[in-house]
Simulated assay, not measured.
Amino acid sequence: MPKVGMEPLRRKALIDAAVLAIGERGSLDVTMSEIATRAGVSAALAHHYFGGKDDLLEATMRHILRELGRDSVAALAGVSDPLGRVSAVIAVNFAHSQFRRETIAAWLAFYVEAQRSAPMRRLLRVYTRRLHSNLMSGLRELLPEREAERTAEGIAALIDGLYIRRALVDGAPDAASAVALVEDYLETRLARETART
């Protein structure tokens, strides 16, 4: 008989194992058995909790998005000035919980999977809308609407691009230089608008 309360712990262990397995492989080409072994459970139990690999991968993406959402809320709490809000959104996307080798590989694998999987595509749309909304919460007060929209799009593209570039190099991710690069872009956009007015 299964122990009461073990299901959430095992589900979390399987999700964490999926992130690590995807990170090592650099793709979604991992098996439920590999993930289950990493999590210390049987493949049958992994199938019991998630049905199939696609269900586990979707749950893993949802978990990463929940973590990012939670971190974003915490980063934005109490930040009232618009520039501070935009900077907080940029920084949280390069926080250690997101910008580490395994999670970067998982994000890239999910982007690729979204080309064929409607559920993954929906999840990535949720992410892009949330990022856009969080950026616009500060940018609207700093720039005219059209320029705010363009700047939010540029920042999002830089974040995605830095994840891709990070996946192609060896060594530990350098979050500070990534944040500095995006902040430089933001500063340039703001200076350009100031020069116009």
Score class of each variant (00 low, 15 high):
Arg192Ser: 14
Lys53Leu: 13
Glu145Lys: 05
Ser137Glu: 12
Leu190Asp: 04
Met120Ile: 02
Gly23His: 11
Thr194Asn: 11
Val73Ala: 10
Val4His: 14
Ser72Gly: 03
Val30Glu: 09
Arg166Tyr: 06
Ile90Pro: 03
Gln115Lys: 09
Arg85Glu: 08
Asn134Gly: 01
Leu9Met: 08
Arg101Val: 05
Ser42Leu: 08
Ser97Val: 12
Leu186Asn: 09
Arg130Glu: 13
Asp170Asn: 13
Arg140Ser: 06
Val79Asn: 07
Ala191Ile: 12
Arg10Leu: 14
Asp81Lys: 06
Leu143His: 03
Ala95Phe: 03
Val86Ser: 09
Asp71Ser: 08
Ile90Lys: 00
Met136Cys: 04
Ala152His: 03
Ala157Arg: 09
Arg25Leu: 04
Arg25Ala: 07
Leu14His: 04
His132Ala: 03
Ala109Leu: 01
Gly5Pro: 03
Glu193Gly: 08
Gly69Leu: 09
Arg25Gln: 10
Leu168Met: 14
Ile104His: 04
Leu135Pro: 01
Tyr49His: 03
Asp174Ser: 11
Ala36Gln: 12
Ala18Leu: 05
Met120Tyr: 00
Glu24Arg: 15
Leu124Tyr: 00
Asp55Ala: 04
Glu102Asp: 15
Met1Ala: 15
Leu9Lys: 10
Met32Ser: 05
Gly78Tyr: 00
Glu102Thr: 12
Met120Val: 04
Arg101Tyr: 07
Met32Thr: 02
Gly52Cys: 10
Glu141Asp: 04
Ala195Glu: 08
Tyr127Asn: 03
Arg189Pro: 11
Leu124His: 00
Thr128Val: 12
Thr151Arg: 08
Leu9Ala: 13
Leu139Ala: 06
Asp29Arg: 15
Thr151Pro: 13
Ala44Met: 14
Thr194Leu: 14
Val182Arg: 04
Ala180Leu: 11
Leu76Tyr: 04
Ala74Asn: 07
Pro8Ala: 00
Glu58Ala: 00
Phe94Ser: 02
Val19Gly: 01
Ile104Asn: 05
Ala43Val: 07
Arg189Asp: 14
Leu20Phe: 02
Asn134Ile: 02
Val112Lys: 13
Ser137Thr: 09
Ala36Ser: 12
Leu57Gly: 11
Ser97Pro: 06
Ile15Pro: 10
Thr197Ala: 13
His48Ala: 10
Val92Cys: 02
